[in-house]
Simulated assay, not measured.
Amino acid sequence: MLKVDSTYLKAGRGQTSYIDVMGSTGDLPETRRKPRFLCLHGFRTSGEIMREQLAAKWPDQILSRLDLFFPDAPFPAAGKSEVDGIFPPPYYEWYQYDKDFMVYPNLDKAFARVEELMIEHGPFDGLMGFSQGAILSVALAGLQCKGLALTTVPKVRWLVIMGGAMFKAPEVAERVYPSKIDCASLHFIGEKDFLRRNGEKLLEWFDDPVVVRHAKGHTVPRLDEDESIERVAEFLRKIEDELAPGDAKIAINASEEGICAS
Protein backbone atom coordinates (compact mmCIF):
# COMPACT_ATOMS: atom_id res chain seq x y z
CA MET A 1 0.00 0.00 0.00
CA LEU A 2 1.26 3.46 -0.87
CA LYS A 3 2.21 5.42 2.23
CA VAL A 4 2.31 9.18 1.93
CA ASP A 5 3.48 11.57 4.62
CA SER A 6 2.66 15.22 3.92
CA THR A 7 4.29 18.20 5.59
CA TYR A 8 2.74 21.61 5.02
CA LEU A 9 4.64 24.87 4.73
CA LYS A 10 3.32 28.37 4.24
CA ALA A 11 4.04 29.64 0.71
CA GLY A 12 2.45 32.79 -0.59
CA ARG A 13 -1.31 32.85 -0.26
CA GLY A 14 -1.82 29.12 -0.02
CA GLN A 15 -0.25 26.04 1.43
CA THR A 16 2.58 24.00 -0.01
CA SER A 17 2.88 20.26 0.42
CA TYR A 18 5.73 17.79 0.13
CA ILE A 19 5.32 14.19 -0.90
CA ASP A 20 7.51 11.71 0.92
CA VAL A 21 6.82 8.15 -0.13
CA MET A 22 8.19 5.53 2.21
CA GLY A 23 9.42 2.30 0.76
CA SER A 24 11.96 0.80 -1.59
CA THR A 25 14.01 3.13 -3.75
CA GLY A 26 14.45 0.46 -6.41
CA ASP A 27 17.94 0.48 -7.91
CA LEU A 28 18.80 3.99 -6.68
CA PRO A 29 22.08 3.83 -4.69
CA GLU A 30 21.72 5.02 -1.11
CA THR A 31 24.57 7.52 -1.60
CA ARG A 32 22.77 9.28 -4.43
CA ARG A 33 20.03 11.79 -3.75
CA LYS A 34 16.62 11.66 -5.40
CA PRO A 35 15.96 14.11 -8.25
CA ARG A 36 13.96 17.12 -7.02
CA PHE A 37 11.02 18.41 -9.02
CA LEU A 38 8.94 21.52 -8.48
CA CYS A 39 5.39 20.41 -9.33
CA LEU A 40 3.02 22.95 -10.90
CA HIS A 41 -0.65 22.05 -10.64
CA GLY A 42 -3.44 22.57 -13.15
CA PHE A 43 -5.86 25.47 -13.59
CA ARG A 44 -8.07 26.14 -10.56
CA THR A 45 -6.77 23.24 -8.51
CA SER A 46 -3.97 23.28 -5.91
CA GLY A 47 -0.65 21.78 -4.93
CA GLU A 48 -2.40 19.48 -2.47
CA ILE A 49 -4.79 18.24 -5.16
CA MET A 50 -1.90 17.41 -7.49
CA ARG A 51 -0.13 15.63 -4.64
CA GLU A 52 -3.22 13.53 -3.94
CA GLN A 53 -3.67 12.70 -7.62
CA LEU A 54 -0.11 11.44 -8.01
CA ALA A 55 -0.24 9.53 -4.72
CA ALA A 56 -3.39 7.75 -5.89
CA LYS A 57 -2.35 7.11 -9.50
CA TRP A 58 1.40 6.47 -9.53
CA PRO A 59 2.99 3.39 -7.95
CA ASP A 60 5.44 3.42 -5.07
CA GLN A 61 8.20 2.08 -7.32
CA ILE A 62 8.13 5.40 -9.19
CA LEU A 63 7.23 7.90 -6.46
CA SER A 64 9.80 6.51 -4.04
CA ARG A 65 12.54 7.63 -6.43
CA LEU A 66 11.43 11.27 -6.53
CA ASP A 67 11.59 14.29 -4.22
CA LEU A 68 8.50 16.33 -5.12
CA PHE A 69 7.42 19.77 -3.91
CA PHE A 70 3.87 21.04 -4.54
CA PRO A 71 3.24 24.80 -4.22
CA ASP A 72 -0.04 26.60 -4.80
CA ALA A 73 -0.37 29.08 -7.66
CA PRO A 74 -0.36 32.76 -6.62
CA PHE A 75 -3.93 33.65 -7.61
CA PRO A 76 -7.15 32.34 -6.01
CA ALA A 77 -9.50 30.81 -8.58
CA ALA A 78 -11.51 33.54 -10.28
CA GLY A 79 -14.30 31.15 -11.28
CA LYS A 80 -15.65 27.64 -10.87
CA SER A 81 -13.17 24.79 -10.67
CA GLU A 82 -13.61 21.66 -12.78
CA VAL A 83 -12.70 19.59 -9.71
CA ASP A 84 -15.30 21.20 -7.44
CA GLY A 85 -17.17 18.35 -5.78
CA ILE A 86 -14.25 15.96 -6.34
CA PHE A 87 -11.56 17.74 -4.33
CA PRO A 88 -12.26 20.37 -1.66
CA PRO A 89 -11.21 24.02 -2.03
CA PRO A 90 -9.28 26.26 -1.96
CA TYR A 91 -8.41 26.38 -5.67
CA TYR A 92 -5.76 28.47 -7.40
CA GLU A 93 -4.63 29.52 -10.88
CA TRP A 94 -1.20 30.51 -12.19
CA TYR A 95 -2.51 33.13 -14.63
CA GLN A 96 -5.69 33.95 -16.52
CA TYR A 97 -6.65 33.86 -20.21
CA ASP A 98 -9.37 35.14 -22.51
CA LYS A 99 -11.94 32.99 -24.33
CA ASP A 100 -9.70 32.64 -27.40
CA PHE A 101 -6.59 31.72 -25.37
CA MET A 102 -4.73 34.66 -26.89
CA VAL A 103 -4.38 37.03 -23.91
CA TYR A 104 -2.83 35.91 -20.62
CA PRO A 105 -3.23 38.36 -17.73
CA ASN A 106 -0.66 37.96 -14.94
CA LEU A 107 1.53 35.58 -16.95
CA ASP A 108 4.72 37.47 -16.08
CA LYS A 109 3.72 37.40 -12.41
CA ALA A 110 3.38 33.62 -12.69
CA PHE A 111 6.88 33.38 -14.17
CA ALA A 112 8.23 35.51 -11.34
CA ARG A 113 6.41 33.50 -8.67
CA VAL A 114 7.87 30.21 -9.87
CA GLU A 115 11.36 31.69 -9.74
CA GLU A 116 10.67 32.88 -6.18
CA LEU A 117 9.59 29.37 -5.22
CA MET A 118 12.74 27.90 -6.75
CA ILE A 119 14.87 30.33 -4.77
CA GLU A 120 12.99 29.77 -1.51
CA HIS A 121 12.67 25.98 -1.67
CA GLY A 122 15.30 24.83 -4.18
CA PRO A 123 17.54 23.84 -5.67
CA PHE A 124 15.40 21.82 -8.07
CA ASP A 125 16.56 19.59 -10.90
CA GLY A 126 13.40 19.89 -12.95
CA LEU A 127 9.79 20.94 -13.33
CA MET A 128 6.74 18.68 -13.37
CA GLY A 129 3.46 20.15 -14.55
CA PHE A 130 -0.11 19.25 -15.39
CA SER A 131 -2.30 21.30 -17.77
CA GLN A 132 -1.72 25.00 -17.00
CA GLY A 133 1.25 23.95 -14.87
CA ALA A 134 2.66 21.97 -17.81
CA ILE A 135 2.27 24.93 -20.19
CA LEU A 136 4.04 27.11 -17.63
CA SER A 137 6.84 24.56 -17.10
CA VAL A 138 7.73 24.36 -20.78
CA ALA A 139 7.54 28.13 -21.18
CA LEU A 140 9.87 28.70 -18.24
CA ALA A 141 12.40 26.20 -19.58
CA GLY A 142 12.30 28.01 -22.93
CA LEU A 143 12.70 31.43 -21.33
CA GLN A 144 15.59 30.17 -19.23
CA CYS A 145 17.30 28.98 -22.41
CA LYS A 146 17.03 32.53 -23.72
CA GLY A 147 18.23 34.07 -20.47
CA LEU A 148 14.85 35.77 -19.93
CA ALA A 149 13.65 33.92 -16.81
CA LEU A 150 14.94 31.70 -14.00
CA THR A 151 18.29 33.49 -14.27
CA THR A 152 19.03 33.22 -10.54
CA VAL A 153 18.38 29.48 -10.14
CA PRO A 154 20.00 26.28 -11.47
CA LYS A 155 19.28 25.14 -14.98
CA VAL A 156 16.08 23.15 -15.45
CA ARG A 157 17.51 19.85 -16.65
CA TRP A 158 14.40 17.68 -16.78
CA LEU A 159 10.73 18.24 -17.55
CA VAL A 160 7.73 15.99 -16.85
CA ILE A 161 4.74 17.25 -18.85
CA MET A 162 1.17 15.97 -18.37
CA GLY A 163 -1.58 17.33 -20.61
CA GLY A 164 0.78 19.98 -21.94
CA ALA A 165 0.35 22.52 -24.72
CA MET A 166 1.85 25.68 -26.18
CA PHE A 167 0.79 29.30 -25.97
CA LYS A 168 -1.27 30.26 -29.03
CA ALA A 169 -0.63 34.00 -29.16
CA PRO A 170 2.20 34.53 -31.70
CA GLU A 171 3.87 37.33 -29.75
CA VAL A 172 3.97 35.18 -26.61
CA ALA A 173 5.16 32.06 -28.45
CA GLU A 174 7.92 34.01 -30.20
CA ARG A 175 9.10 35.37 -26.89
CA VAL A 176 8.90 32.10 -24.98
CA TYR A 177 10.05 29.31 -27.27
CA PRO A 178 13.59 28.95 -28.65
CA SER A 179 14.19 26.73 -31.67
CA LYS A 180 14.96 23.88 -29.26
CA ILE A 181 14.58 23.46 -25.51
CA ASP A 182 17.62 21.73 -24.08
CA CYS A 183 15.93 19.63 -21.40
CA ALA A 184 15.34 15.92 -21.28
CA SER A 185 11.57 15.59 -21.28
CA LEU A 186 8.86 13.07 -20.44
CA HIS A 187 5.41 13.74 -21.94
CA PHE A 188 2.09 12.11 -21.03
CA ILE A 189 -0.45 12.45 -23.86
CA GLY A 190 -4.07 11.30 -23.56
CA GLU A 191 -5.89 9.95 -26.59
CA LYS A 192 -9.07 11.82 -25.58
CA ASP A 193 -7.34 14.96 -24.30
CA PHE A 194 -8.73 18.10 -25.93
CA LEU A 195 -5.13 19.42 -25.91
CA ARG A 196 -3.70 16.31 -27.58
CA ARG A 197 -2.86 17.93 -30.94
CA ASN A 198 -1.19 20.85 -29.22
CA GLY A 199 0.68 18.44 -26.96
CA GLU A 200 1.92 16.53 -30.00
CA LYS A 201 3.15 19.78 -31.54
CA LEU A 202 5.03 20.50 -28.34
CA LEU A 203 7.23 17.44 -28.91
CA GLU A 204 8.93 19.21 -31.83
CA TRP A 205 10.68 21.58 -29.41
CA PHE A 206 12.64 18.74 -27.78
CA ASP A 207 15.32 16.32 -28.90
CA ASP A 208 14.36 12.69 -28.21
CA PRO A 209 11.34 13.34 -25.97
CA VAL A 210 10.05 10.32 -24.07
CA VAL A 211 6.32 9.87 -24.67
CA VAL A 212 3.84 7.86 -22.60
CA ARG A 213 0.40 7.60 -24.17
CA HIS A 214 -2.81 6.75 -22.36
CA ALA A 215 -6.43 6.24 -23.35
CA LYS A 216 -7.96 8.90 -21.10
CA GLY A 217 -8.61 12.60 -21.52
CA HIS A 218 -7.24 15.73 -19.85
CA THR A 219 -6.21 14.27 -16.52
CA VAL A 220 -3.23 13.40 -14.37
CA PRO A 221 -2.58 9.96 -15.89
CA ARG A 222 -2.86 6.70 -14.03
CA LEU A 223 0.43 4.84 -14.20
CA ASP A 224 -0.62 1.21 -13.94
CA GLU A 225 0.52 -0.59 -17.10
CA ASP A 226 3.85 -2.41 -17.19
CA GLU A 227 4.98 -0.73 -20.42
CA SER A 228 4.28 2.81 -19.21
CA ILE A 229 5.80 2.14 -15.79
CA GLU A 230 8.96 0.81 -17.43
CA ARG A 231 9.19 3.82 -19.74
CA VAL A 232 8.97 6.21 -16.79
CA ALA A 233 11.42 4.08 -14.80
CA GLU A 234 13.92 4.23 -17.66
CA PHE A 235 13.57 8.02 -17.79
CA LEU A 236 14.34 8.14 -14.06
CA ARG A 237 17.31 5.80 -14.45
CA LYS A 238 18.87 8.22 -16.91
CA ILE A 239 18.36 11.08 -14.46
CA GLU A 240 19.87 9.05 -11.63
CA ASP A 241 22.88 8.20 -13.78
CA GLU A 242 23.53 11.91 -14.34
CA LEU A 243 23.24 12.86 -10.69
CA ALA A 244 26.61 12.37 -9.05
CA PRO A 245 26.59 10.99 -5.49
CA GLY A 246 25.88 13.86 -3.13
CA ASP A 247 25.36 16.25 -6.03
CA ALA A 248 23.24 19.17 -4.85
CA LYS A 249 24.32 22.08 -6.99
CA ILE A 250 24.18 22.91 -10.68
CA ALA A 251 25.41 25.98 -12.54
CA ILE A 252 23.29 28.91 -11.43
CA ASN A 253 23.11 30.95 -14.62
CA ALA A 254 21.79 28.78 -17.42
CA SER A 255 22.80 31.33 -20.05
CA GLU A 256 26.46 30.82 -19.14
CA GLU A 257 26.36 27.28 -20.47
CA GLY A 258 24.96 28.04 -23.91
CA ILE A 259 22.23 25.53 -23.26
CA CYS A 260 19.80 26.17 -26.07
CA ALA A 261 19.48 27.18 -29.66
CA SER A 262 17.89 30.55 -30.23
Rank of each mutant, 00 (worst) to 15 (best):
A244D: 12
R32C: 10
V21Y: 10
S17N: 05
L202H: 03
A261L: 13
R36D: 08
N106Q: 14
K57Y: 11
K238A: 08
I135S: 11
V138P: 01
P154E: 09
R157Q: 15
D208I: 01
L117C: 03
A11R: 08
F37W: 03
V210A: 08
K34Y: 09
T25C: 13
E240W: 06
L38V: 09
K201M: 13
Y104W: 07
A169R: 14
A233G: 13
T25W: 02
V21L: 14
R196W: 08
P178S: 07
Q96N: 11
V21R: 06
A254I: 00
N198F: 04
C39T: 13
I239D: 07
R44G: 04
M166L: 15
V232T: 12
R175S: 08
D182M: 07
E116K: 13
Y95F: 15
Q96M: 12
D125M: 10
R33P: 09
D226F: 05
A149K: 06
F87R: 10
R33Q: 14
P74E: 12
K10P: 01
Y177E: 09
R32F: 07
D182F: 01
M22P: 00
E82L: 14
V220Q: 04
E174Q: 14
E115N: 06
P35D: 11
P89R: 03
K180V: 05
Q61H: 10
G147I: 00
C145E: 00
F235I: 05
D20C: 11
Y104I: 09
Q132W: 03
S46I: 06
E225I: 03
I259H: 09
W158E: 06
A110E: 05
T25S: 14
V160Y: 03
